[in-house]
Design a protein around this nucleic acid. Structure first.
Length: 638
RNA sequence: GCUCCGAUAGCUCAGUGGUAGAGCGCCUCCUUGGUAAGGAGGAGGUCCCGGGUUCAAAUCCCGGUCGGAGCUCCA
């Protein structure tokens, strides 16, 4: 007999060769029915997995996260089964579960059409109704070659196995796949799924290889979960910054300007300006000096920095200026370094912190451009800190404060990752260990949780990555803090120490928003276009009930303008239509003035999205409240 | 960059090898309004650009530009 240890530490005695399904049945008939897979010593396996030795076993049901991965992987097989039934000539590639769903790659002569997708979805229903068991078989490489003799992509994969390795294949009905598993017991378990899109994908992710056709889908155990997921996709679409940006008049691009180059319209420029003003105030309070550096520089600079050597394919081409090659800058660091080197520096000057809204240009392949989120010209809220080795911990501390203060204002929760030494790296092991240790100990000293991104650092130094979570749970790249062992060497940075000797300073790169373009694009989606009052392009819209009260309304508008509130007067159309437009434009406050208000010197305030909660206030009181809300930069996402 | 898809009024989109359409927006007039669309009339188009096929192309074909879904890459 063997001992099966369950998660509650109870132990079952089972005959060797018992399956996970047997274990579930032993525990209870309810669990036997609910079980979809299992875990043996932490590894996810089929329900049919036979236990030969004592082990820790966990039964997975629809409630377990790990089971969802199994289900989705099985759904990918169901998709491939269906595709093969309708298009037997399709060669099969890979079909894994991914975050939020699954995909399967096929090699076909004709790309899939939306009609094909619908046909596959329907055929999948047939496959599910047929309730084919997922049968696992262990085969030798030789046998596998035989089984997949008609599947060139699988044969290619097969050759990567050792000759002696045991290979597993899974069969559901007519469909056989080279696959490690595990799977749900039968196709009948895959009940709630939806195919979402088809697109090209290179075989093995290699752009030199042939393009396959990838079908994406998602699957859930419960219909309600599927519905919710599809609704979340709809919600994301509704928040798309490209649509909202156009609708709300925030930004555009123009083919005559060129792809990936953003035109900030007045309403969008207001948002950016407010953020910049906020940051200027913030960094000056945190001991930075503001600087400006040119958008282009002689190639000499980028030779020294190493950008021409390492980053050239992301740089715009050279322009000839009096026989000298110039380039648009892809980063701001060399310029800041040049300022640092503009005078001899003493240890008494350090730390020196330079901050700039620096506009950079990078050549991005046309296919990666995306609204404001991925562009070719963007402005970074970049800063570089030059300090002594001893000052690094305190500078990191200050940066953590700065990041926290800044993200709090936008209402982003965040997580921190420490990215460590990659395989190919500059600098000694000792430098790296020391730098990583400094970052880690500062985080720990503050009691901050962080993940370690092993090998995720840049070749020139470790970094802290801050990941933001937006209002609908999506992750965004946030601030980064990057130590640099490289540029101080390349530029031969120096300061004179207490000992009257020359020393090399440490250099820290950091961005908070990263690029204004990307950040504002993200903010549009985070707030769904309904910006908090301090950022709202139009903060108050004043609506006189009829022409009679326009004079009174104008007076109120002047009062608001006098305290620099962004306000408009809207007197056309019926009140209902104006209210509707104000809501569509997501104006935070609408101020209605009619007979009652004009005579009493009050105003009827309607808050965005809360039409049923109106409030009649003294005008002065409203202005005070509004000013307080603006000055505190209250993150009232509505 | 690659595969596929798309481009028609300011916006969202329908449509077709033979006279260019809707809703919203805009303009004018009527209506003077109490919290998400009052009414009538009107203006507005190089159907993305270039070439080809055709008696005839906005429609079919080829090339380009721009956009989209992905792959790969990234602030």
């Amino acid at each position: 007999m063997i001992n099966v240890t369950l998660p509650d530490d109870s132990v079952l005695e089972m005959a060797p060769g018992s399956t996970i399904g047997d274990v579930a049945a032993q525990i209870g008939p309810g669990l036997a029915k609910a079980a979809v897979a299992g875990q043996v010593d932490g590894e996810t396996v089929d329900l049919g997995y036979a236990l030969e030795r004592s082990a820790a076993v966990r039964i997975l049901t629809a409630r377990d996260e790990e089971a969802l991965v199994v289900l989705r992987h099985s759904a990918a097989h169901v998709l491939a089964t269906a595709v093969r039934e309708l298009k037997p000539e399709a060669a099969i590639g890979f079909g894994p579960a991914i975050e939020d769903g699954f995909y399967y790659d096929f090699e076909v002569d004709e790309p899939f059409t939306p009609d094909d997708l619908e046909a596959f979805q329907e055929q999948m229903v047939e496959v599910v109704e047929a309730d084919h068991a997922f049968e696992r078989r262990r085969v030798t490489k030789e046998e596998a070659r035989e089984l997949f003799s008609d599947d060139p992509l699988k044969l290619e994969r097969l050759e990567e196995f050792d000759d002696a390795e045991v290979i597993t294949v899974y069969k559901d009905g007519p469909f056989l796949d080279l696959c490690r598993g595990p799977h749900v017991p039968s196709t009948g378990h895959v009940t709630h799924f939806k195919l979402l899109s088809a697109a090209g994908a290179y075989w093995r992710g290699d752009e030199k290889r042939q393009m396959l056709q990838r079908i994406y889908g998602t699957a859930f155990f419960k219909k309600a979960d599927l519905t919710e997921h599809l609704e979340r996709l709809e919600e994301a679409k509704r928040r798309d910054h490209r649509h909202l940006g156009k609708q709300l008049g925030l930004f555009s691009t123009d083919p005559r300007v060129g792809p990936g180059l953003i035109l900030w319209h007045p309403r969008g420029a207001v948002i950016r300006t407010e953020i910049e003003n906020f940051e200027r105030e913030l960094v000056q309070r945190h001991g930075y000096d503001l600087v400006y550096t040119p958008h282009i520089a002689s190639e000499r600079l980028f030779e020294i920095s190493g950008h021409l050597e390492n980053f050239a394919e992301s740089m715009f081409g050279a322009m000839d200026v009096d026989g000298v090659a110039y380039r648009p800058k892809p980063m701001n660091c060399p310029g800041h370094i040049a300022i640092f080197q503009g005078a001899p520096r003493s240890y008494r000057d350090l730390p020196i912190r330079y901050a700039e809204f620096g506009t950079c240009y990078r050549y991005e392949r046309s296919g990666v451009l995306h609204g404001m989120l991925r562009v070719r010209g963007f402005t970074q809220d970049d800063a570089h800190i030059f300090c002594t080795r001893e000052q690094v911990p305190e500078e990191i501390e200050r940066l953590l404060d700065l990041v926290d203060e800044m993200l709090r204002v936008f209402g982003y929760p965040y997580t921190i990752a420490l990215a460590t030494k990659p395989a190919k790296a500059l600098g000694t092991d000792e430098d790296w260990r020391h730098a990583e240790g400094v970052l880690a100990s500062v985080l720990s000293a503050r009691g901050l949780d962080y993940a370690v991104d092993e090998g995720g650092g840049a070749f020139y130094g470790p970094k802290l990555d801050f990941e933001l979570t937006d209002a609908i749970g999506r992750k965004w790249q946030g601030p980064t803090v990057q130590l640099d062992f490289n540029l101080p060497e390349r530029f031969e940075l120096e300061y004179v120490g207490e000992d009257n000797e020359r020393h090399r300073p440490f250099m820290i790169h950091r961005v908070l928003v990263g690029s204004m373009e990307r950040f504002v694009g993200g903010l549009i989606e985070h707030y769904a276009g309904a910006f908090p009052v301090w950022l709202a392009p139009e903060q108050v819209r004043v609506l006189p009930i009829s022409e009679q009260w326009e004079a009174s309304a104008r007076e109120f508008v002047s009062q608001l303008e006098a305290v620099r509130v962004r306000v408009t007067l809207e007197a056309r159309d019926t009140l209902g239509a104006r209210i509707r437009n104000g809501e569509l434009f997501k104006v935070p406050y609408m101020a209605v003035i009619g007979e009652r208000e004009a005579e009493a010197g009050t105003v009827a305030i309607r808050m965005r999205g809360e039409g049923n909660k109106q409030e009649v206030m003294e005008r002065g009181a409203f202005i005070d409240r509004l000013r307080a809300e603006i000055e505190s930069r209250a993150p009232t996402a509505v």
